[in-house]
Design a protein around this nucleic acid. Structure first.
Length: 264
DNA sequence: TCCCATGTTGCTAA
DNA sequence: GTTAGCAACATGGG
């Protein structure tokens, strides 16, 4: 479940910890990642994020794009022995300091690819701001629910199931509404609520509802601030109604039928 | 034991 | 072109 706030947390922590470090060696444990190798001696120049994608750029021009999908994690430590479900290890050093970056991923959906310069995935990043006019314009041609629309990375990149539910609740929008039916005013509410929620979640180092951990193995804190996600049956803090749960396109949606209605 | 659900995305087929 | 459904995989719960 790493979504934008979780990936941004990793980006910031990696910048803090290993920018300027050089690759000592790398080891692939999972045959699915066969062929991925990091050139020894290359220096980590920059780490960027676009949506849920993380890109590590080295001074020799090489760049690697990582997507954690469902259960992927990055774990930075000194230990040599790979933790359970390790798929890749990069040993990095600066001076006498040596650290190891593990890609851990029980379900093995995460992807790592070498990319050339300027290859940016589609979609406008949802952080730090969203243009409401762009949302409205992109939505008018879409016959999908607003929930599905927010999850579609080709329009707005970075929002997953947890934050889509939270954003729609904050913006008081019924997740069942069609994206094309939202007014400009409603899109403005989405464009205001989304970056605020994402920023708070980043400050909390993400949402640890199940197995999310940050770069150093610590839980995030945003799970304590969720208003609807996984709160089925609880009382809505805004209207006193009951949080409900429905299925949309095969995925759970949590929302408050009391205050997420079609009324503008 | 079996069946179902779980955060994501990309491919296939309607 | 758009959209629904499923596969990729492992784990935990009923």
């Amino acid at each position: 479940m790493p979504e934008l706030p979780e990936v941004e947390t990793l980006r910031r922590q990696l910048c803090q910890a290993v920018l300027g470090f050089r690759v000592v060696q790398s080891t692939v444990f999972d045959p699915k990642l066969e062929g991925i190798s990091f050139r020894p001696g290359s220096r980590l120049r920059n780490i960027e994020r676009h949506g849920k994608w993380l890109t590590m750029q080295f001074e020799d021009g090489s760049a690697y794009r990582i997507h954690l999908r469902m259960t992927g994690r990055l774990f930075l430590c000194r230990q040599i022995s790979p933790p359970a479900h390790s798929r890749l290890m990069i040993e990095l050093a600066r001076g006498r300091q040596t650290v190891r970056l593990f890609l851990i991923d029980p379900r093995r959906f995460a992807t790592v690819q070498m990319i050339g310069p300027g290859q940016i995935p589609p979609g406008t990043d949802a952080f730090p701001e969203i243009c409401p006019e762009n949302l409205h314009e992109a939505a008018v041609r879409r016959n999908v629910s607003v929930k599905s629309f927010l999850l579609d990375q080709k329009t707005i990149a970075g929002i997953g199931n947890i934050y889509a539910c939270e954003i729609l609740h904050a913006a008081k929008i019924d997740p069942l509404r069609k994206a094309r039916q939202l007014s400009r005013r409603e899109w403005r509410r989405v464009a205001e609520c989304a970056p605020a929620i994402l920023e708070t979640a980043i400050d909390c180092r993400g949402t640890s509802v199940s197995d999310w951990r940050d770069l150093h193995g610590e839980k995030g804190e945003f799970q304590h601030r969720l208003k609807v996600y996984r709160r089925e049956g609880a009382v809505c803090g805004r209207c006193g109604g009951r949080i409900g749960r429905i299925r949309q396109e095969g995925r759970s949606t949590f929302y408050c039928p009391g205050c997420q209605k079609s009324i503008k």
